[in-house]
Computed example of a mutant assay.
Amino acid sequence: MRAVLATVADLAVLVFAVTSMLSVGLAHSARQILGPLRDVGALARALVANFVLVPVFALGVLWLWRLDRPLAAGLILVALSAGAPFLITLTEVARSDVALSATLLVLLLPATVVYAPVVVPRVLPEADVSVGALALPLFLTMLLPLAAGLLVNSRWPAPARRWGPPARRVSTLALVVVVLATTLANVSTIIALFVEGAILPALLVIAGAFGLGYLLGGRDRNARTVLGLGTSQRNIAAATVMATQGFADHDTVVMVIVTSLAGFALLFPVAMVLRRREPVPVGRPG
Results as ranks from 00 to 15, higher is better:
residue 125 P to E: 12
residue 177 V to I: 15
residue 99 A to F: 06
residue 88 I to Y: 14
residue 39 D to Y: 09
residue 240 T to S: 14
residue 75 L to H: 01
residue 173 L to H: 10
residue 28 H to V: 10
residue 209 A to H: 01
residue 38 R to I: 00
residue 75 L to A: 02
residue 202 A to F: 10
residue 143 L to N: 02
residue 246 G to S: 06
residue 27 A to G: 13
residue 23 S to E: 13
residue 279 P to H: 12
residue 238 A to P: 03
residue 173 L to P: 05
residue 271 A to S: 12
residue 169 R to I: 10
residue 63 W to N: 06
residue 64 L to H: 06
residue 208 G to R: 05
residue 108 L to W: 03
residue 274 L to F: 13
residue 217 G to P: 01
residue 3 A to I: 10
residue 175 L to D: 05
residue 155 R to S: 08
residue 101 S to L: 08
residue 146 L to R: 01
residue 102 A to I: 07
residue 217 G to T: 10
residue 145 P to H: 06
residue 138 L to E: 02
residue 46 A to N: 00
residue 68 D to I: 11
residue 57 F to Q: 05
residue 129 V to I: 15
residue 259 T to A: 13
residue 112 T to E: 08
residue 41 G to T: 14
residue 89 T to S: 14
residue 251 D to W: 11
residue 255 M to E: 07
residue 119 V to P: 04
residue 88 I to M: 13
residue 240 T to W: 12
residue 100 L to I: 12
residue 212 L to E: 01
residue 124 L to D: 03
residue 176 V to N: 06
residue 71 L to W: 08
residue 217 G to S: 08
residue 39 D to S: 14
residue 284 R to V: 15
residue 269 P to W: 04
residue 64 L to W: 14
residue 83 G to S: 10
residue 124 L to H: 06
residue 232 S to L: 10
residue 145 P to C: 07
residue 55 P to G: 09
residue 145 P to N: 05
residue 49 A to L: 05
residue 134 L to I: 08
residue 150 L to T: 11
residue 141 T to G: 02
residue 41 G to C: 12
residue 115 Y to V: 12
residue 20 S to A: 15
residue 220 D to T: 13
residue 12 A to G: 11
residue 286 G to D: 10
residue 20 S to L: 09
residue 266 L to T: 08
residue 200 L to E: 02
residue 253 V to F: 10
residue 185 A to N: 05
residue 31 R to K: 09
residue 11 L to G: 09
residue 246 G to Y: 06
residue 6 A to R: 14
residue 205 V to H: 01
residue 256 V to G: 07
residue 226 V to D: 03
residue 286 G to N: 11
residue 166 P to W: 04
residue 96 S to G: 07
residue 238 A to K: 00
residue 242 M to D: 00
residue 27 A to N: 11
residue 261 L to P: 05
residue 115 Y to I: 09
residue 15 V to M: 01
residue 17 A to T: 11
residue 284 R to Q: 14
residue 165 P to T: 04
residue 107 L to G: 02
residue 196 E to K: 12
residue 209 A to G: 10
residue 70 P to I: 15
